[in-house]
Computed example of a mutant assay.
Amino acid sequence: MAQDDPKTLVSTQWLAAHMRDPDLRILDGSWHMPDTGRNAKAEYEAGHIPGARFFDIDDIADSRSDLPHMVPPVEKFMSRMRAMGVGDGHQIVVYDGAGLFSAARVWWMFKLMGHRDVAVLDGGFPKWVAEGREIEDMPPIVRDRHMTVRRQAHLVRDVTQVSAAAKLRDHEIIDARSPGRFRGEDPEPREGLRAGHIPGSRNVHYASLLNDDHTLKAPEETRAIFEAAGVDLSRPAITTCGSGVTAAILSLALARMGKDDHSLYDGSWTEWGMFPTLPIATGDADV
Results as ranks from 00 to 15, higher is better:
154 H>S: 13
152 Q>S: 10
122 D>G: 02
123 G>A: 06
131 E>L: 13
119 A>T: 01
133 R>L: 14
114 G>S: 07
131 E>W: 08
146 H>M: 11
111 K>M: 07
123 G>P: 05
150 R>K: 09
147 M>S: 00
145 R>D: 05
142 V>P: 10
130 A>Y: 00
134 E>I: 02
110 F>Y: 08
149 V>W: 03
128 W>R: 04
126 P>S: 06
147 M>N: 00
129 V>W: 00
122 D>L: 06
151 R>Q: 13
144 D>N: 13
133 R>M: 13
110 F>L: 04
122 D>R: 00
110 F>K: 01
132 G>F: 03
138 M>S: 13
114 G>A: 07
146 H>Y: 10
139 P>K: 14
149 V>P: 05
138 M>H: 13
120 V>Y: 09
128 W>N: 01
139 P>T: 10
146 H>T: 12
126 P>A: 08
116 R>A: 15
152 Q>F: 05
135 I>E: 11
154 H>G: 14
153 A>R: 15
125 F>M: 08
153 A>H: 15
107 W>N: 10
107 W>S: 08
150 R>Q: 12
134 E>M: 06
133 R>S: 10
118 V>Q: 01
135 I>M: 14
152 Q>Y: 00
153 A>S: 15
128 W>H: 01
125 F>N: 01
124 G>F: 07
146 H>L: 13
141 I>T: 10
142 V>I: 15
144 D>P: 10
140 P>D: 14
120 V>G: 05
153 A>P: 08
133 R>W: 13
113 M>E: 04
152 Q>R: 11
126 P>R: 04
148 T>I: 08
146 H>S: 10
108 W>F: 03
108 W>L: 05
126 P>Q: 09
154 H>V: 06
155 L>I: 03
151 R>S: 09
109 M>D: 09
141 I>P: 00
109 M>N: 12
112 L>Y: 15
139 P>E: 15
134 E>H: 06
124 G>P: 06
132 G>W: 08
125 F>R: 01
140 P>G: 11
110 F>Q: 04
119 A>Y: 02
117 D>R: 09
133 R>Q: 12
138 M>Y: 07
146 H>F: 09
130 A>I: 01
109 M>P: 10
129 V>D: 03
115 H>D: 03
109 M>G: 07
134 E>Q: 09
129 V>F: 00
123 G>C: 05
111 K>V: 04
138 M>T: 12
142 V>A: 11
113 M>C: 05
124 G>N: 05
149 V>G: 03
148 T>D: 11
149 V>K: 01
132 G>L: 02
148 T>L: 12
121 L>T: 02
116 R>P: 02
140 P>M: 13
139 P>R: 13
149 V>C: 15
143 R>C: 06
123 G>V: 06
123 G>F: 07
139 P>I: 12
129 V>K: 07
126 P>V: 01
126 P>T: 05
124 G>I: 01
115 H>Y: 05
132 G>I: 03
131 E>N: 14
128 W>K: 01
144 D>H: 12
143 R>P: 00
126 P>N: 06
118 V>T: 01
142 V>Y: 12
